[in-house]
């Protein structure tokens, strides 16, 4: 069993920061945004740290918390050795857990946080971020090169989200969660990350429903993280094959950009899912039982260059919106 049920864990608040591309997209309800990819800093790396710090500071201020009242900070991002989150954590006097599950990092942080609350921790801040140009530089080509892209490529979203998890009752409850298995379906194309990650999302959904003894229609909404248009289709096909039905399903990666923004298959990055969750799904208040499945493609440039297939992971968290 890799599933947990929680009685007293709540997702109290989330502070969202979005970059220039995201602001021009379909979502508008961000807490903060910037039209400058540098966020007033000298390098993109510093810009990403600044986003995280702003998100955490604003979240703590909005919830009247200081460093001593937060028991643990859990963070992860896409930078090498998750330096972004580590540099951010150095600015606080809060115990820190760094996590890496590529774009599934946010849910991994939520699951860890929820379990710590179960062990009597009081307030936990989960943070994640991604920056389009940092990812381009690290995983693809130099920023200014502008290499032509395949139709199936996703576009790393820029932004940061900090979320507060605590035992204090609020509108959104973290009801249960399932830790995902790493799967490898032999896909070697790092440009087609939707295809890499769809089986992982399917696997964790399958395990979650089995272990919780539920059907897909138990949830009002099932939302995957950043599969993009192609991954979304693949995920649906995989579920169809297994006979899993949904009331409503979509991928967060397809909810961020407008089609004319030339972002190909949609948004990716650990930020995609929490950005849609906090600026669209929760404020809309349309769904009561929500399963969020963050998906991560666990590759490095060396793994791909050496023509290996890419492993992927997904983490599922079930949320309940209380009346």
């Amino acid at each position: 069993m890799a599933s947990f049920k929680y009685d007293n864990v709540y997702l109290n608040d989330g502070f969202t920061i979005a970059g220039p591309y995201e602001v021009k997209g379909k979502l508008s309800n961000f807490d903060m945004s910037s039209d400058d990819m540098y966020f007033g800093e000298k390098t993109f790396e510093k810009a990403e740290v600044k986003m995280q710090v702003k998100a955490i500071d604003s979240l703590m201020a909005r919830n009247y918390l200081n460093d001593n009242q937060v028991d643990c900070l859990i963070g992860g991002d896409l930078s090498n050795q998750i330096t972004t989150s580590s540099v951010t954590a150095a600015k606080y006097r809060i115990p820190f857990l760094g996590v890496y599950a590529a774009c599934a990092s946010f849910n991994e942080a939520l699951i860890l946080g929820a379990n710590l609350i179960k062990l009597d921790f009081k307030n936990i801040v989960c943070v994640t971020s991604s920056h389009n140009l940092n990812s381009e530089k690290q995983f693809r080509y130099p920023v200014e090169y502008g290499a032509p892209k395949k139709e199936c490529t996703t576009f790393t979203a820029t932004g940061s989200v900090a979320a507060l998890v605590s035992n204090k009752e609020s509108k959104v409850k973290i009801e249960s969660a399932t830790i995902g298995k790493v799967v490898d379906y032999g896909i070697k194309d790092a440009n087609n990350m939707g295809a890499v990650m769809a089986p992982a999302a399917f696997q964790v959904l399958f395990d979650h429903l089995n272990e919780m003894k539920r059907s897909g229609t138990y949830y009002d909404l099932i939302m995957t993280g950043d599969l993009g248009e192609i991954g979304e289709e693949l995920f649906k096909k995989l579920c169809q094959r297994q006979g899993i039905k949904f009331n409503k399903y979509f991928d967060a990666g397809t909810q961020i950009y407008k089609s004319e923004q030339d972002t190909k298959a949609g948004a990716s990055g650990p930020i995609a899912l929490p950005l849609v969750l906090f600026s669209k799904i929760l404020p809309e208040n349309k769904y009561k039982k929500i399963l969020i499945i963050a998906t991560g493609s666990l590759h490095s440039p060396a793994l791909v260059n050496q023509k290996n297939s890419i492993p992927s992971i997904a983490q599922a968290v079930s949320l309940e919106v209380l009346q």
């Binding site: 139709e151 199936c152 896909i187 087609n192 295809a195 192609i230 289709e233 693949l234 096909k237």
Partner: peptide, 8 residues
């Protein structure tokens, strides 16, 4: 399936 669904 991936081959089939990935746009040309």
């Amino acid at each position: 399936l991936v081959k089939e669904l990935t746009p040309k």
